[in-house]
Amino acid sequence: MTGFILRRLGFVILTVLLSSVLVFGATHVLPGDVATMILGREASEQAKDSLRQELGLDRSLVVQYGSWLSDLARGDWGTSLSTGEDVRGVTLERLSNSAMLALVAFFMYVPLGIFLGVIAAWRRNSYIDQVISAGSLAFVGLPEFVTAVLLIAVFSRALHWFPSSSAIAPGTGFFSALPSLILPGLTVSLTSLAYVVRMTRAGTAEVLETDYVRTARLKGLSAGNVLFRHVLRNSLLPTVTVIAAGVGWLIGGLIVTESVFGYPGLGRLVLFAVQRRDLPLIQATTMVIVTIFALANLAADIMYALLNPRIRYR
């Protein structure tokens, strides 16, 4: 088991390293001169040259990559080109804001998604299954920016239950921020909810077809026993992986949602960085997100292995 975790951890590190190559490459190799990008097209050739020198752009790419990576690892993430702020400070602060929002969303859609998915599978082809399945499909097709605008129109403009802007002040605590988190949390949840429902339903329906569930039923066990002891134990295993993979969706959703609600999270920071072509900020935020995504998958792999005796006892 320890060997398994170490192997997966090594894999995570490799993935993050390779991603760093891609991030670095995307920001340096792709068409477009960095100096022009920063200073604008009208800047003098001389100014561009001096900037290049300052940024170390005249050195070979490998050397540049090496020093960038070692700076990144040592915690020196550079200064923002557009605001002059310390990239690390602003990224981590926004990260904690996004974590609050993600947490709210996570607790909204994961339990509910699993619940609805299991219900739909258990009552397959019934009226309730059709409502859940069709509903989840409809939400999959609804982009976050549409959901967000509609939710604001109803719950904020019409009903005045929640604020329409979630632009919280820096350092706001979780509970004072909570009212501002509900609508964006709900927005992010709806798309991810549909995803979890569909995957849970598929996984559970598959387990319900197995021989061992038939055995359990023919043992005369109560429906609850069959469901909780025999079905869920097996069907929720793949769901763990599905939820981890869904973190990618969640992050994508956060980028859009945070920008609609003006919420000062990591997603909005990424968008800001991209719009301003703020290279150090793009690199740092992207690497943070990639690392989180990889760690989420690692956690899912470990949980999967812990819950599955076929991996646990090999």
Binding site: A216, L218, L307
Partner: peptide, 24 residues
Amino acid sequence: LRHVWGSKVGLVSQNPQAALNPTL
């Protein structure tokens, strides 16, 4: 039937590897 299955009727099916729960 749940009071009959298991107590008065027993069933053993073809593939035991599939018929037993892998996680218990």
